[in-house]
């Protein structure tokens, strides 16, 4: 069972829900929580666990071999991303623009642009009891999150069998990193807050999930603040509201300290119980 926690707007509680839900589920089931918000991975601040392994993650970029190059200009012509530029007697490669398509490298008649590895980030794997936690972190200055998200998915697929409940903390927004994060999941939980910003960004997220033909439900965070428009919207659109996490200054304080909230606030535990029931029901359906 693969569940992604996503949201259009940032700061609505993706990490809060992912970390609390994963820890809560891990009380009874094997769980792997993966932080795919590789630009700003935060889940690790809330999970205390032991480091199991760590690996550097690479992307492939071309490297210019001056001695072999005849300056024919094909590489520059075939690069759609302007990542390979011919400047006088030189070929310059701009790694941050390169998408790693291999066109320049493989279409070079002289083999003067072999692909080499360039580090783009780091993956860490932690474990505590039933709970595994994997996070990937993009190096500062690297601009493309998607390749690292892809490699992280691959790591999870290789290391965990289907007995694990997989929870993915997705990046914010609706653009390509989010698509990559939720692509192969069975269910997406969209978390929002009952405010105009929350509603606006939720509608974008819903459009994205419908485009991807994903099954999804909504969790309302900071319930009680703002207005009822998010609930009305969900009703009109026939979207299930899975849980409502109350607006409570104590939650903000616990969060600020890096603590899990469901252990301290019983109302939150009750709401997580509802999400858990849904997950377990769906897992049983899959088995049947």
């Amino acid at each position: 069972m693969k569940i992604a926690v996503a949201s259009g707007k940032g700061g609505t509680g993706k990490t809060t829900l992912s970390t609390n839900l994963a820890s809560f589920l891990a009380e009874n089931y094997p769980v792997v929580l993966t932080d795919l918000d590789v630009e700003e991975p935060n889940s690790g601040l809330f999970i205390e666990a032991e480091l199991v392994s760590e690996e550097r993650k690479f992307k492939m970029i071309p490297e210019w071999i001056e001695d072999k190059c005849t300056l024919c200009g094909i590489c520059q012509k075939v690069c759609n991303f302007h990542a390979v530029i011919q400047l006088g007697p030189m070929i310059m490669v701009f790694p941050e623009l390169c998408h790693g398509c291999y066109a320049c490298s493989e279409l070079c008649p002289e083999d003067a642009l072999p692909m080499i590895r360039k580090k783009m980030g780091q993956l860490k794997h932690f474990k505590k009891g039933n709970l595994h936690f994997v996070e990937s972190r993009l190096d500062i200055g690297e601009e493309q999150a998607v390749p690292l998200i892809k490699q992280t998915h691959k790591y999870i697929d290789q290391h965990f069998d289907k007995d694990f409940i997989r929870i993915y903390d997705a990046p914010p927004g609706t653009s390509c990193p989010v698509m990559e994060a939720v692509k192969d999941t069975d269910f997406v939980i969209l978390i929002t807050e009952p405010t105009p910003f929350g509603l606006h960004d939720l509608t974008l997220a819903v459009e994205t999930m419908r485009e991807l033909k994903k099954e999804f439900g909504v969790v309302v965070n900071r319930y009680g603040i703002g207005n009822d428009d998010v609930l009305k919207y969900c009703q009109e659109e026939q979207i299930a509201v899975l849980a409502k996490i109350p607006n409570d200054r104590r939650i903000a304080e616990l969060y600020s300290q890096g603590k899990l909230i469901y252990r301290e606030i019983p109302e939150v535990r009750e709401e997580l119980e509802k999400v858990k029931e849904l997950i377990i029901r769906r897992m049983e359906e899959v088995v049947r």
């Binding site: 940032g10 630009e39 993009l138 601009e143 999150a145 914010p172």
Partner: peptide, 9 residues
């Protein structure tokens, strides 16, 4: 934008 990737740059 949020994050540290290409839109922020």
């Amino acid at each position: 934008s949020p994050g540290v990737g290409c839109p922020v740059v």
